[in-house]
Structure formats: C-alpha cells, structure tokens
Nucleic acid binder design. Structure first.
Length: 294
DNA sequence: GCCTAAATAT
DNA sequence: CATATTTAGG
C-alpha cells in the first residue's frame, strides 16, 4: 500500500480515494455468486472440507455492519492509550480460519448467544427462508435473555491469549485489555479473566522462566508484527451436556487438557476441525450492543 | 466499573 | 476431576 495522495488537502483527498476505491470494486456480475462453491466437490472431499451452509446477502450485509461497528468501537476506545502502536489491527482479512467439518445438524452459537441450526443438506433448502428465520431468531430472543454458551479454550484461542499477554507485558495484562487485544468475537471480559486466573496459577507453579516475556513490562520486541490482526471466532459449545465420563478422562477432539502447553509446539496444520468455527467469506468481528463494551 | 480470588456449576 | 462461570471482596 503506497500513498499517492496529495499532502495539501487530506480530508477531501481521502474521500476521493474512497470513491476511487469504490469505483474500482468489481460489479455484482463479476463476483462469484454466494451459492457457488469455490472448490470442486472432489477437492473438498479429498481434504475433508465440508460445504458451508449457504450464505445469503442477509448474512453478508449483517457481517459488514458488524465489522463496521466493531471498527468504530475499537477506534474510539483506543484513542488515548499509550500503546496505539500496538493497535495496528483491522488491516487484513482472515487468513487461517476455515470452515469446520460439519456432518449433520450442528448448533452454533452466534455472538449474540443465539442458537442457529445449520442444516447441511446435499440438495439445498430454501436459503432465503432459512436466512430469514435466522434473522427473526436473532431479533426475537437476542442476547440478553439467553445465557451465553460455554467457551472452549482451544489451543488456537489459548495461543492468541498467551501471545497477547506476552506482548502486553505484566502490567497491561488485565482482562479488559487482553480481551480487546485478542479481538475475538464473542469473547467476554469474564472469559478472559477466568482464563487469566488459571493461567497465572499455571505460570506461578510451572516455572515463570518458561514464559519469560511476561516480565517485559516495557515490550522491547518490535510490535509491528501483526499479532492481533485477524478476527477469530470463539468456539462455543451450545451446552456441554453431561458427557458420561465415568472411567477414563476422555476429551472432545479439538479441546485440550490443561496448561501443559507448548510455547510454539502446535504449528501443525491441524486447523481443520475446531468446534464452532464457521464462515468462509470476509467475516466478522461481530458486535452487538452488549453490556460490556464502552 | 474493573480486577482478583474463591465458590459454584457443568 | 478439570475447566468455565459466577460471586464476593477490594
């Protein structure tokens, strides 16, 4: 991205650039239809990629709105902090999150805490209808009435958490800041606080030496590295129903046990299946009017 | 209101 | 039993 704008008048120049950008956008006919798959079914099955539920314009528009409002909120919130330089997010789009494997009916919890049922069918259902139904559900019993689903701290989430804590330093590593820096949709301050509590216990017990970055209250590392750039969807369990664990500890695949944690161990490309990940297109730091944003 | 530690729930 | 949520105190 290079700047070619006229330094004399910035505001109007930026407006012009926006217009320029808009006119440069592909027309509707140039875009791949939402209903069209990007890869062939053979390729998909070869890589165990299951087709996403159909997305409609409603989904896309809603995602765009959420993104915009989220950006606005972040911008206003970080104006007077001393680590503006850290906040270089909202630049790039998601790169690594990919749709999870869905076999049959799967309940996914929206950021609003609203359950949506994804019906994966070989032949499609009426997409508009399902979208409308979703919309209605969203509006009817939105957020406040329903209690939030239980958050699952996947290795990915935890890694992001650890990275943020490390880069923030011990002083700034408080739940609210961590939550903001993680930039995870649907993640609440309480979630982070709880996890932070456990994490501190872990660090206290298992040598703090292993996590040396914690003591860098003044982050000396170049923080230009895109840390919290891409939005991430917090995996939620609808309600982790009593799984009858009587004999041995069995874990759901994708969750991890405890904190014996590999600093950078899990760089495998196992990001195929985590519970709760969905969405392909440029989505979505979702935000709604929630009690916890200022 | 926010943060942390402890209690409670799943 | 481990982990996440909720509550309570500062």
């Amino acid at each position: 991205m290079e700047e070619e704008r006229d330094p004399s008048c910035k505001t109007s120049a930026s407006e012009e650039r926006v217009q320029e950008w808009e006119t440069g956008l592909p027309s509707a006919t140039d875009l791949t239809p939402l209903s069209q798959y990007l890869i062939s079914p053979e390729l998909a099955s070869a890589f165990s990629i299951t087709a996403e539920p159909f997305q409609t314009m409603l989904d896309v528009n809603r995602a765009s709105q959420n993104t915009i409002s989220s950006l606005r909120r972040q911008n206003s919130g970080f104006g007077d902090k001393n680590f503006k330089s850290l906040c270089s997010f909202m630049e790039d789009r998601c790169g690594s999150d990919e749709p999870m494997v869905v076999d049959e009916d799967e309940v996914v919890v929206d950021v609003d805490g609203v359950e949506k049922r994804k019906i994966q069918s070989v032949e499609n259902v009426e997409e508009a209808d399902s979208a409308l139904r979703m919309e209605n559900l969203n509006e009817d019993c939105s957020a406040r009435t329903l209690k939030r689903a239980r958050l699952v701290w996947t290795p990915q989430l935890h890694k992001r958490f650890v990275d943020v804590v490390g880069h923030l330093g011990i002083d700034n590593a408080v739940p609210k800041t961590i939550m903001q820096m993680m930039n995870v949709e649907g993640l609440t301050r309480e979630n982070v606080a709880s996890h932070l509590q456990k994490y501190r216990l872990f660090v206290k017990r298992q040598g703090p030496a292993s996590s040396d970055q914690l003591f860098a209250s003044t982050p000396t590392v170049p923080q230009n590295m895109p840390l919290a750039s891409m939005p991430y969807v917090a995996p939620m369990q609808p309600m982790p129903m009593h799984m009858g664990m009587s004999g041995g500890g069995n874990l759901a695949p994708g969750s991890y046990s405890g904190f014996e944690f590999h600093p950078y161990g899990m760089s495998r490309e196992h990001q195929g299946h985590w519970p709760g990940n969905k969405f392909g297109p440029p989505v979505v730091p979702n935000s709604h009017v929630s009690p916890n944003n200022k």
